Simulated assay, not measured.
Amino acid sequence: MSVSDGGPPGAAPGGPEPQPEAPSPWADPTSSWTVPDVAAGAPARVDGAPVSHAGAAAGPTQAAGSWPAAPAGLPPAAGSWSGQPAAGPHAAWPAAPAGLRQAPPGPYGSWLPPPRRGLAALAAPAAPRTHRWGLPAFLLAEAVFLLVSAAAGVLLIGGSLGSDGPPVDVWVFVVATAVPTLAAAAVAVAVTWLRGNGPRIDLGLTWSGRDVAIGLGLGFAGLFVSTAAAAVWVAIVGPDVSSAVGDALDGLRAPWPVALAVLVAVVLVAPFCEEILYRGLLWGAVEKLGAGPWLAFVITTVVFAFAHFELVRAPLLLVIAIPIGLARLITGRLGASIVAHSVNNLLPGIALYLMLVGVPLPAPA
């Protein structure tokens, strides 16, 4: 017995009629991406409504002729999934966003920044500034430094620094000079916790072997340059030009533990705190205002030189600050500049230690 012409194709003689085949989900224009949905000149649609690029890019390709997944690294605002796709079943991505370039190979590569050349290539890329603090935070920390310094000078030192007053106790002097710097650095760190992402992210307070190597290299190079610059400066200005700390401790003697405390304060404490304040907090505040790394380097270097309130030595301090700032500029972190600053302070710290324990030092030529 043959199957009648009107029977369904594939039906067995005398058997039950075959069930209709379930429709493919890819053929349903209200629930899936199909070729008609992305035809030329039509916006992308799902469930009968236009969708934005975020929805289209959320998953991989679902069917032949569907939208491809978003290229890796493309900023959400750069693509236009809901715009007019190019001719053909696949939509073409628009041109690279302003300031970015498409990485080869293929049309769906990552969006990368343009290659940096010249001096721009020397500086580490600036991290996005997402913190909520800015220049007022630096001014607050600097105000704390000045107020604590004034209070320490009155309460601890008094009139000892005057020419007619009694000699200052070395240990008291160490406390009176270290506490204001520590207080300012503490304010800087607290600001990053309260109004930002913490000192590691906001200030770049991280360390690596590369940072230490760069800090040592620039520190010793800066030490050589600053020593030569100091000799030239003494020849121009005269031998009486010295640091405020050297002037205050000149001619004093102290037990070796106290002298060692002076050495630690000059070589370790002061560089750590000053870098947090100037090339951490001030640097971040300047970049928050829209400045690039090089402008931040220039501003922080000049402010650092004049913030010591030693106008006669300001040009020399400017020379000293350049390699320290370069360490921060090249690495983008404070670890390198802290090391460079410590190396730069090493010889003055050793000289103060030897002077305090009574070892005679050669007089400048």
Rank of each mutant, 00 (worst) to 15 (best):
G88S: 14
W93P: 09
A78H: 02
L74M: 08
P89N: 11
G88C: 11
P71D: 01
P94I: 07
P85V: 09
P75T: 06
G88I: 01
S82C: 02
G83C: 11
A87W: 07
L100Q: 06
G99E: 05
A72F: 00
W93S: 14
H90V: 15
H90Y: 15
P94M: 09
A91T: 11
P89L: 13
S80P: 04
G73K: 03
S80E: 08
S80R: 11
G73W: 01
A78I: 00
A96L: 05
P76W: 04
G99V: 05
A96W: 01
W93M: 12
A87C: 10
A72E: 12
A95S: 15
A86R: 13
S80H: 13
G99F: 06
W81T: 04
W81K: 05
A92L: 11
G83W: 04
A86N: 10
A92N: 00
P75C: 12
G73F: 03
S80W: 04
P71R: 01
P97E: 06
L100E: 05
G79Q: 00
L100D: 03
G73P: 00
A96Q: 04
G73M: 02
S80G: 12
G83Y: 07
A87E: 11
H90I: 12
Q84I: 13
A77T: 05
P89T: 10
A92R: 11
A92Q: 02
A96G: 02
L100A: 09
P97F: 05
G99C: 07
S82V: 03
G88W: 10
G79E: 01
S82T: 08
L74H: 02
P71S: 01
W81L: 15
P76S: 10
L100M: 15
W93H: 11
W93Y: 14
S82Y: 03
S80V: 04
W93A: 15
A91K: 10
P85I: 07
G99W: 08
L100I: 06
A77L: 08
A92F: 03
Q84R: 14
P94T: 08
P85D: 05
G88M: 07
P85K: 13
